[in-house]
Every structure is written in C-alpha cells, then in structure tokens.
C-alpha cells in the first residue's frame, strides 16, 4: 500500500519524461503474474516512459528486473496469467484495450520484435525464406511472386549476400550471425515504426555483436524506426543508444541520455553496473588470482515487495529512510530522472 501511494506522489511531482511525446507512451504500467489465483510479486511496478519516433533506447537491467516483461507487454504477448494495468499508448491508441485481432494488426507490422535466440525463434521445419514471407503475408495482400522479391530485398538489406542460399535454408543450416540477421529481416519486413530487441546479441561472439549493433544502428538511420534495445550489458549501449532506462526490481530507477548517464551515473545501482563493465583498461593492470568485481547480493522477491527502496538491501549508500520509503523520482537535470534519496552523494 505504502509503495503505491509513494509512487503516485512521485508521478505527479516528477518532471516531464524526456523525449518528445510521440510513438509510445507508457504510464503507470504495472504487470503482475498471478499463480493459482494468488497475485505474486509484480514484475513491473508503475513504469512511465516515452519513446520518440526514430530514437534508440537502451533498457538496462539484470535478470528479474522486469525488462523482458516490458518487451512482452509492448507486444501484447504476456501470458494469460498476467494482470496488466496502467496505459500503453501507441500513436494515440491505448494498446492495453486492444483485443487479439487488433494486436495482430500491430504486431510485426507497426511494432516488431527481435528475440534473444534467433535459432529458437525460427521454426525448425520451415524454410527461412517462407518464414519471412509469412510475416509479409500476415499484413499485406500481395501475390506470392511479389512477396518473394520483397523477401529477397529485405534479406539483402540486413547484409546477407547469398540471398538464394539463405532463402532456401532451414534454420539449422545457418550460422548464428546469419540467423540473427534473418530474425532482424523478419522484424524489418513490414517497415515497423518500433522494433523491440530483447538481448539480440546475447548468443553472438564479440565481433558478431559489433556487426549486429552496427546493422541495427544502420537500419535505424535508414528506415527511421525507433528501437528499444534490452540488455544486461551496459557496454553495448555506449556509443549505440541515445537514451538509457535502468530498471531494477520492476521499476525504472534511472533514465537519461546514455553519454551523460554513463559519465556520471546517479543511482547506486547504475554506478555498480558501470563499475562491473569489463574494459580492457581495467584488466591491463590486473594480476592473476584477483577476482572480477561483483555487485554484492542478489535480487530477491522480498526486494520487489519491500516498502522501501528495492535496491536498499544491496546498496552501500543506504540510510534509514531507504528501508521504509520508496524514493520519489526526481529530475536533477534536464532530460534525466532518478529514484534515489542519496543520488547526490
């Protein structure tokens, strides 16, 4: 009860969310997974954010922070056991009021998704080319010959050169990098306004990761589609995303332009995450036997339900008030917000 009243107070007092109003606006977005009738801990707790057309927003958080739930709720793919509240306005229409057939018109056409494991997100018994064609078929009335040309064009757009081989291949015949590009081409096929990418580079090695990020950036520039890039690795966002949203225990704890947030993080959690970022410089002077830095503690269900700040149990800068009250959101400078009592320290 306390957290809810504490939260709504913050919602009214905080500054306007950065980013021009436009494409997607979430207000008080709350998702609970009910199990056997009993509501469990909320996966998202009163999230507010805006996505402007054409921008790249990184969503940063560890597992359990609610970032995947966020992705699924933007596409209306939450399981039936999930309760969703608040509003999620896409181009002036509240998606949460959509029924299944209205959702089907949005998914893939206006909002597309790129999944974590491209190998698993493609049917194993269907040719890759037909699977891209299926996306087009779901949204456009065209002849199959025309559709095939379009598929070949979109495969070329994501940098695949052997279009013919890829078109006829099954997913198990392609490499990880090729699969990821195919997955992206499915998302791009209908020229969506927003692409949600959930850890799309997780299964790729370093070089391929870089290629993928370049490709995402390029498609973002070329087609002007906004991108929500979900990751646990802040290193991927530097020099890639325009803005970053840091999530912890189902809440947004910090938000701002990537360059400013990374140069001077305000929330202790963001600070911790950025310190963990392995950079070659950090390791240069390291001798064997020294441990990699870790963020002490883990995110538990108790943290979700705690009346105070959910990060308090792991925070080195916590004070008395952190245990009992959730910190209201403040805007320390233009375009930034943070939920912490002690962000100035």
């Amino acid at each position: 009860m306390r957290t809810v009243s504490g939260y709504s107070e913050s919602a009214t007092t905080r500054a306007q969310s950065p980013g021009a109003p436009g494409l997607l606006c979430a207000r008080e977005l709350t998702v609970c997974y009910a199990s056997r009738g009993e509501p469990s801990s909320p996966a998202l707790l009163g999230i507010d954010f805006d996505i402007a057309p054409g921008e790249i927003v990184g969503v940063l958080g560890e597992s359990g922070s609610g970032k995947s739930t966020l992705a699924l709720s933007i596409l209306g793919l939450l399981p039936e056991s999930a309760d969703i509240a608040g509003s999620l306005v896409f181009e002036g229409k509240d998606l949460l009021r959509f029924d299944e057939s209205a959702w089907r018109g949005i998914r893939g056409a206006r909002i597309a998704m790129v999944f974590q494991e491209p190998g698993l997100s493609l049917s194993p018994v269907m040719r890759v080319g037909s699977q891209i064609a299926e996306v087009l078929r779901a949204h456009r009335q065209e002849g199959s010959n025309h559709r095939k040309l379009q598929v070949e064009a979109v495969l070329a757009e994501v940098g695949l050169t052997q279009v013919d081989r890829i078109y006829k291949a099954y997913s198990h015949q392609l490499s990880g990098g090729e699969l990821q590009r195919v997955a992206l081409s499915q998302a791009l096929a209908c020229r969506p306004d927003l692409i949600v990418a959930d850890e799309p580079t997780r299964s790729l090695d370093g070089t391929r990761q870089k290629e993928m990020l370049d490709l995402l950036r390029e498609t973002n520039r070329k087609f002007g589609c906004a991108l929500i890039f979900i990751t646990h690795n802040p290193g991927l966002l530097a020099g890639f995303a325009d803005r970053v949203i840091v999530m912890y225990a189902g809440r947004i704890v910090e938000e701002g332009p990537v360059s400013r947030v990374f140069r001077r993080p305000l929330h202790p959690y963001t600070k911790g995450l950025l310190q963990l970022m392995p950079t070659s410089l950090q390791y240069a002077g390291r001798t064997r036997g020294q441990h990699l830095p870790v963020l002490p503690g883990t995110l538990t269900d108790d943290d979700h339900l705690s009346p105070g700040c959910s990060f308090a149990s792991r925070c080195s800068a916590r004070t008395q008030v952190c245990q009992t009250e959730f910190p209201a959101e403040v805007a320390p400078e233009k375009g930034r917000r943070v939920s912490c009592f002690n962000y100035e320290n």
């Binding site: 299944e100 049917s123 998302a187």
Partner: peptide, 14 residues
Amino acid sequence: APFVQAARAHGIGG
C-alpha cells in the same frame, strides 16, 4: 516453443 511466440510477435495467428 519460442518460435511460436516469435511467429505471434510477427502478427501471425489463428
């Protein structure tokens, strides 16, 4: 399976 959810995410249904 993830690929069925992926297909749904692309607007394929029914």
